[in-house]
Simulated assay, not measured.
Amino acid sequence: MWEDLKIATDAERQTWEWEPLQRVGPLPFGVNHEHVERALQNTARVHNHYAAFERQGVDVYYDDGGALRAVALNAVRGPQAFMNGTALTGRLPSELRLWLTRTADAGERLFMGTHDDPAFHDLGLVMRSQMCGDYVRSLPLFVAAEWAERLGHLASQVPEREWNTCR
């Protein structure tokens, strides 16, 4: 039986600014793990280029040199990130359909990634999905410029945990 999850409301979430390809909230791409821990005021063990900050609902991914290259915001409790006034975290897919279309119509390159997730190369964004009880909610995965052109091939760099929809 599915666990009955309480999805955080926007009012209950931290609000993070997102600068495509540069930073998500207090996390600039390219910093090391110690910087991430200080910014989130929490600790997490790095395993296989990945660390989970469960309390904040934030997962981070590092390259071979230990530089931050991707940040995923958990659909249930992760911070809220916005683009052009649209909330991206914890949304039903139907709530993002119009935003995806408008963003693509505005000239951003939209494609479907390896796991059929909509993604924008030029923004460094993959709109993942996460099972939340009986519903699927949006889980944005933001990537640095160094990984943006390889969005369709991130499965080889980002641990399998990220590509599983049930967490």
Rank of each mutant, 00 (worst) to 15 (best):
R128M: 08
N84T: 05
R109V: 08
P159N: 10
R150I: 12
D117T: 03
G90R: 13
T103M: 09
M127D: 14
M83C: 05
A52S: 11
E19T: 14
P20R: 08
A52C: 11
A81D: 01
T114D: 10
V143W: 01
A119H: 04
Q41M: 11
D122F: 07
L123H: 11
P159F: 05
P159A: 10
V158F: 07
K6S: 12
D63E: 14
H47D: 11
N42F: 01
P159W: 00
N32R: 09
L110K: 13
L125H: 14
E34Y: 12
L27A: 01
M127I: 13
W99S: 08
R91E: 13
L98G: 06
G66C: 03
S129K: 14
Q14Y: 01
G113K: 02
D4K: 11
L141H: 02
R102F: 06
Q157N: 11
T15D: 14
L40M: 00
T103L: 06
L21P: 11
R161G: 12
G113E: 06
F29E: 14
K6P: 02
L73P: 00
L5S: 01
E34N: 05
R167P: 03
S138I: 09
M83L: 15
P118F: 01
L21K: 05
T165A: 14
L96E: 06
H35C: 07
K6L: 00
A155Q: 09
R69N: 10
G133T: 01
V76M: 14
V60T: 02
P26L: 08
S94W: 12
D64L: 15
W147F: 15
D122V: 03
G78F: 00
F111N: 04
G152P: 07
L21D: 09
Q130D: 05
V36M: 09
L98P: 09
F111E: 08
Q41P: 02
A119M: 10
N164H: 15
R128G: 09
T165Y: 05
V58A: 01
L98K: 14
S138F: 04
A104M: 07
A51I: 02
G124E: 06
Q56R: 07
E149H: 03
T101D: 09
R109T: 08
A72W: 00
L151D: 11
M131W: 04
F111D: 05
P79Y: 00
E17A: 15
A70Y: 04
R161V: 15
G65N: 12
H35S: 15
A51T: 01
A39C: 12
L110M: 14
N32F: 02
V36N: 14
E108K: 09
S138K: 02
P93C: 05
E160Y: 07
R128Q: 07
L73G: 09
M127S: 12
L27E: 03
R69A: 13
Q130E: 14
V158Q: 02
S94F: 09
A39P: 03
L73M: 06
W2D: 15
L73I: 04
H35E: 03
L125R: 04
F142K: 05
H49C: 10
R38S: 02
